[in-house]
Design a protein around this nucleic acid. Structure first.
Length: 415
RNA sequence: GUGGGUGUAGCUCAGUUGGUAGAGCACCUGGUUGUGGCCCAGGUGGCCGGGAGUUCAAGUCUCCUCACUCACCCCA
């Protein structure tokens, strides 16, 4: 029989890896709660139109990376490729919006994108998200970045780079995009790479991010967003920066920092790591004031960020193996019931342990205890069985051992 | 979607100009009749990813295919 194998880009997380995800989620829950955020869990499956309306039809994510399929009645459903759209949908649908009310949510879970897998990129990947609705002030952006910084510190990550930019708004970005397109059109087209010749018309901001050396040279002379912000955006960005400076956040201004999803405006930021491969971005976010309205809700401003858990997990050390408090080594077959009962009573006292019921040799049972990093080995063999006792062996290097009545041993543990 | 790399024992990997399969670790057994780690000896374990072809002979050469992986693209 051929082995059934997992589908491409989907991973099994065994304990050592799964623990890192739990560590990230625990830290996020702890930190975000301190900032007044509440947990929101939304479905993994949504109507396809939700993502078309929010992320943008022209993006790669919607255009060619979604897991989209019809349900049994022919309705088009999509495995969520990101979290924000679903959170916005839930927010709007619940009707929690009221003028002047700020809502703050965090969420985590699996996202799905049909991409070619590589280091730090899976088809099913996991994100930690935070979203703020109803706050248009620069302070909301700044506080979100502070919270992200606090979260990363909580999980013990250092050496990360914060990058910051403003993408402008509906009032000033179109003019900037046009200026960019004009600029690139004025250049010798031969010197632009194939991708950029296409991108300069479809998404000129992306050209700024091109890694081809020739393109980079061209981009150096391109107009900067900083010079094209409208007065409102300029003021908003200046305030965000001054608040970050006041909070001693170290960041790099990157006028070429762009976002892949259409809904971002004004403040955008990204956190990158070194040594985790080409997919170096571990978190990213920004402001998305028009998004709520675009999925049929009220005109409420929003900001948020997403952290890539796979990429953060790569930066975490393996947790030390906690080992076992005890290991019950049953050598005499007749003592199997006794061993199970003994283990149950110890667990009821909060101890961690396993019992082995394989009727095997003393040597192999002790090796098993050693392998499992057990601190105490409880031996139940022929003589113990006949006398109703247990041999308690300390597994440390020069550990002692003694044989005591089972009842006495349990009574002693209780104390 | 486009490139590159890799598939041999449970794991990490050797395998010469084609000649019928190896090591280390792990596991099991024994040395030590009921005592682990260290040491020594022995043992279990492989359709060499799959298929076709060339050849007296293919892990090795050719083609196809599948899987994994890294990068582009894109993104967290």
């Amino acid at each position: 029989m051929a082995k059934v194998q997992k589908i491409k880009g989907f991973a099994d997380l065994f304990p050592v890896e799964a623990e890192k995800y739990a560590r990230l989620e625990d830290a996020a829950r702890r930190v975000f709660t301190r900032y007044g955020f509440g947990e929101l869990r939304t479905p993994v499956l949504e109507k396809t139109e939700l993502f078309q309306k929010s992320i943008g039809e022209d993006t790669d994510v919607v255009g060619k990376e979604m897991f989209t399929f019809p349900d049994r009645k022919g309705r088009s459903l999509t495995m969520r490729p990101e979290a924000t759209a679903g959170v916005v949908r839930a927010y709007v649908e619940s009707g929690t919006y009221q003028p002047g009310l700020v809502s703050k949510y965090f969420t985590f879970g699996p996202m799905f994108r049909y991409e070619r897998p590589q280091k730090g990129r899976q088809r099913q990947f996991h994100q930690i998200n935070a979203e703020v609705f109803g706050a248009s002030e620069p302070a909301a952006d700044a506080e979100l970045i502070l919270m992200l910084r606090a979260f990363l510190a909580e999980v013990g990550l250092t050496g990360l780079t914060f990058e910051l930019n403003s993408l402008g708004c509906a009032a000033c970005r179109p003019a900037y995009k046009q200026a960019l397109t004009d600029f690139f059109n004025s250049l010798d087209q031969e010197k632009l790479c194939q991708d950029c010749r296409r991108r300069k018309d479809t998404n000129p901001l992306r050209v700024l991010d091109c890694k081809v050396p020739d393109c980079k040279d061209m981009v150096a002379g391109a107009p900067s967003i900083a010079d094209h912000l409208c007065p409102d955006c300029r003021e908003h960005f200046a305030q965000v920066r001054s608040m970050l400076d006041a909070a001693k956040v170290t960041y790099v201004l990157n006028p070429r920092l762009v976002r892949g999803l259409d809904y971002y405006i004004r403040t955008t930021f990204e956190v990158t790591a070194e040594n985790i491969g080409a997919q170096a971005s571990v978190a990213g976010g920004g402001r998305y004031d028009g998004l709520v309205k675009s999925v049929g809700g009220p005109d409420v401003p929003g900001t948020g960020f997403a952290c890539g858990m796979e990429r953060l997990a790569m930066l975490l050390e393996d947790a030390p193996n906690p080992g076992l408090d005890f290991f019950v080594a049953v050598i005499d077959e007749r003592a199997v019931g006794l061993g199970m009962d003994l283990a149950e009573k110890l667990r009821a006292q909060g101890l961690t342990g396993e019992a082995s019921f394989a009727s095997s040799s003393m040597k192999s049972r002790l090796r098993a205890a050693n392998r499992l990093n057990a601190r105490t080995c409880l031996i139940l063999g022929e003589s113990e069985y006949e006398s109703g006792s247990v041999t308690v062996k300390d597994m440390s290097e020069d550990g002692e051992q003694r044989t005591v009545k089972i009842d006495d041993y349990i009574a002693q543990i209780r104390k």
